[in-house]
């Protein structure tokens, strides 16, 4: 019984293993009977099944790779000639740059408004303080007529300007709130990019799995060099810091660590 006759398209790795076992037994039988010619024929058949199965897997892998490339338009977009055909990857980087730009604008807008508001609040506080001092004097009846005229004038001026200043502060605070609207936009953009990354990951896992089938048939074992990661290379804000023991959880732990080092 030869699987090769029925299955000219090649075998799956599991079928191939089974087939190889059967043929190996057959080959040993031939050899024990001193039938070298038939034994050689079996070896030839094994090679043929192996080649065909290999071609089949390579074919599948190539198709999957092509699909992946097509799905993410990785082959287009970098020339910049066809804007419609922009690759998902180039699109994702563009989206993330947009997030950086939006958050920077919002931060600057907020700080501009705060910079504008701080002196106004300071001014109101200062004028109130001076008025309160005058008022105390008046209540204690320690005020001279010239000072009273001055206070009278100051109160007039204070009432005149404070309303306008409060209105400015009010509108600045509202604008600060509005400047946070980037959160909605960047949130949507980041979600899209996260979805894309998940899709790419899925495709890659699929490709790796298929490549693994090839390795089964060819009997190749990979030895992956595990690169020692530089422990102090900058990686930005550490994620899941509370679950990691190599990361401090806040300024207090930094201070503890530094003081243990003699700081």
């Amino acid at each position: 019984m030869s699987l090769l006759d029925k299955q000219t398209d090649g075998l799956t790795p599991e079928e191939f293993e089974e087939d190889l076992k059967n043929r190996a037994h057959k080959m040993v039988e031939h050899l024990e009977k001193g039938n070298l010619k038939d034994a050689m024929q079996v070896i030839h058949e094994i090679n043929e099944v192996r080649d065909k199965s290999l071609y089949k897997e390579i074919g599948r892998l190539t198709r999957a790779l092509h699909e992946a490339i097509k799905n993410f338009h990785l082959d287009a977009g970098f020339s910049g000639r066809d804007k419609e055909q922009i690759s998902s990857m180039a699109d994702a980087s563009e989206r993330l740059s947009y997030v950086t730009k939006m958050t920077e604008q919002a931060a600057n807008r907020t700080m501009d408004l705060v910079d504008e508001s701080v002196p106004i609040a300071g001014d109101i506080a200062e004028k109130s303080k001076s008025l309160r001092e005058g008022w105390q004097k008046l209540r204690k009846r320690q005020m001279k007529p010239t000072e009273f005229r001055e206070l009278y004038h100051h109160i007039d001026e204070f009432l005149d300007t404070t309303e306008g200043k409060a209105n400015t502060l009010y509108s600045n605070l509202n604008e600060i709130i509005l400047a946070q609207d980037f959160q909605d936009l960047t949130g949507q953009v980041i979600k899209k990019v996260v979805d894309l990354v998940a899709e790419v990951e899925e495709s890659l896992v699929h490709l790796v799995r298929m490549a693994g089938q090839l390795d089964t048939i060819t009997g190749i074992e990979h030895r992956f060099d595990t690169k020692e990661k530089d422990k102090t290379v900058a990686e930005g804000p550490q994620m899941r810091a509370e679950e990691r023991t190599d990361v401090v959880s806040g300024q207090d732990e930094v201070d503890d660590l530094l003081s243990s080092l003699g700081f």
């Binding site: 930005g236 804000p237 810091a241 190599d246 990361v247 930094v254 530094l258 700081f263």
Partner: peptide, 21 residues
């Protein structure tokens, strides 16, 4: 934003005067 213990130790050894995360 770098908050790994190894990084803080490296900065200390390199002669930093203060470290704020």
């Amino acid at each position: 934003a770098e908050a790994k213990r190894d990084q803080i130790v490296e900065a200390a050894q390199a002669g930093v005067n203060g470290y704020v995360v």
